[in-house]
Structures are given as C-alpha cells and as structure tokens.
Amino acid sequence: MTATSGRRAEDGPEGETAAEGAPGGGVLEAEVSEEGAPERDPAGGATPGRNEVYVPSRRRIERERHRRGRARRSTAVAALSTLVTAVVLYLVVVDAPGWPRTKETFFDASYAREAFPKVLDGLWLNLRLFAVCGVVVLLLGTLVAVARTLKGPVYWPVRALATAYTDFFRGLPLIICLSIVVFGVPALQLQGVTTDPVLLGGAGLVLTYSAYVAEVVRAGIESVHPSQRAAARSLGLTARQTLRHVVLPQAVRRQVPPLLNDMVSLQKDTSLVSIGGAVEAMRSADVIVGRSLNYTAYIVAALLFVALTVPMTRFTDWVTARTDRHRGQGGIV
C-alpha cells in the first residue's frame, strides 16, 4: 500500500496538473482527476468504442515493474536463507563427534543395495493391504457415519453403538489395537477364525481407521444444509433416497481432502502390521537389521514409504485446490 501511494506521488506531474482545477480537492477528487488524465489515450479525442486498442497506462506499467522487483527480492532472500540453513545443517551433522560411525551404520551403500530388493518386495504387501483396507475403511466408515446421523427413537441402539464404536477406536492407540487383535484373537483358539497376521493386522487397521473416516464423513453429512433435505423430501424422495442421492454425494465431495489425508496415513500405517510378523517392508528391513546390526535397511524402507506417500499427498493437494477453485472467487486473498 505504502509503495503504491509512493509511486502515485512520483506520478505527480500529470495528476497534479489535472487536480489543480479543483481547489481544496481531497484525496478522492485527486484520484478521480487522475483517472480522467489523458495519459491512457495519447492520441486523445477518440471516443472509446469497441475497436479501441487497449494501451496499458503508465500507472499499470509502473505497478507491474514494482511487483516484479518485489518478487525478485523475495526470491533472492528465500534462496539465500535456504542455502545458509543447508550449509549450517550440513556442518552441524558432519562435525558431530559420532558422525563417522552414524554414517557407517545408517548410510552404508552396500547394505542399501542388499536391502532394496527385499524391502521393495515387502512393500508390495503394504500396497495390497492398503488397497483392500482403504476400500473397506471407506465403506465401513460411511456406514457408521450414517448410523450416527439416523434420527428417531427407533434408531437409538444403532446410534449408541455407532457412537461407542467411534469414541472407543478413535481413542485407542493403533499399536495397542493391533497388538490386541493380532495376538489376542489367535489366543482365543476359535474354530474357523484365521490366525494369519496379515489378515488380523488388516482387521485392526480397519477397526481404527473406520472410526476416523466415520467422523470425517459425519462432519460432511452435517455440513449439508437442511434446506437440501427439505427440497429432496418435497420432491417425494424417501429419507433413504435423500441420503443416497442428495446428502451423501455432497458430504463426501466436501470431505475428499480430509478423507485422502486419512488414506495417506493408512498407507504408511500398514507398516505396523509387522508387529505380528507379517513380512512387509518394515519387517523385511527388520530382518536385515537384526542380522547385520546395520540400520541402513530402515533408511531404505523409510525412503520407499515416503516415495509412496508423496504422489498421494500431491493428489490430495490437487483435489483440494480444485475444490477451492470450484467454490468460487476468493479474490487475491
């Protein structure tokens, strides 16, 4: 703002000559006469018409030059501060007394080469687990969310059950939930119930994540304005049809960014099923670390997980940005 008014002052000559005719003219009047100044149309006299050629005014050119200058300055400052931070970090780490040992145990190229194919192999299990759990979680979560929003005394038990479920599993740490399911269920020695750590681990993930997703979807359902329900019911749609065709589509659409966020989380938390001995990426790395006492395999697994979630995160950003764009014009703020 200050810069703009500063430039306006520099613009002085034309603006002032035009404003001179209005004695005691305030800021507003001065600006009006500036608008009227003939600087926009050097030829003068021509009545503005359809085929008038737009020539950017000197004011606009000045403004743009100022903005470019400011952008250049910001870029330079950002680049410099990034560089300084990187150098400082590098020096701190490399100068640390334990760095040579750390480098050996965490960043050993030969161990990395050995670990990479095995961890990658394990990662395939994580991916499959994620794909299956993701779908089940979205379905179960939506079901629980709908159960929580049912109205009427008839549905009290359903509502209470759904509420108890979300309260419990949202508060229960995932690692404890997994331990109970993966070790507790086989201990029961039930006939016909699996003891496969992958299936049980997947079930544990579904239990916890469905509770998260249920809350996200419920928030979405409640954000749909009651007038939408009224409109649907007035058309003769039943409560169920209203939910299916009018409320849920809007609720889910609005909640896509937070839902994807939970999916990113789920994707990396599939590594926790390793506690039951399922040989996924984390477990594969564990085996190598246990044998060699070198932690490089963990770094390999870590990088692979990050590489896996980055596309998902970018996708989330993209969807969010798109939704924001669709929602309309927020201007430049």
């Binding site: 007038s227 009224a230 649907a232 007035s234 009018v246 809007q250």
Partner: peptide, 15 residues
C-alpha cells in the same frame, strides 16, 4: 409429498 411441488425462496437446487 409426491403430489405436491414446492419452490423455495432460496431455490434449493442440488449443487
């Protein structure tokens, strides 16, 4: 409700 149509002040179209 199937036999009665309603038009609302705020249109209430499904966005």
């Amino acid at each position: 409700r199937r036999r009665i149509g309603v038009v609302f002040q705020a249109y209430n179209l499904f966005p």
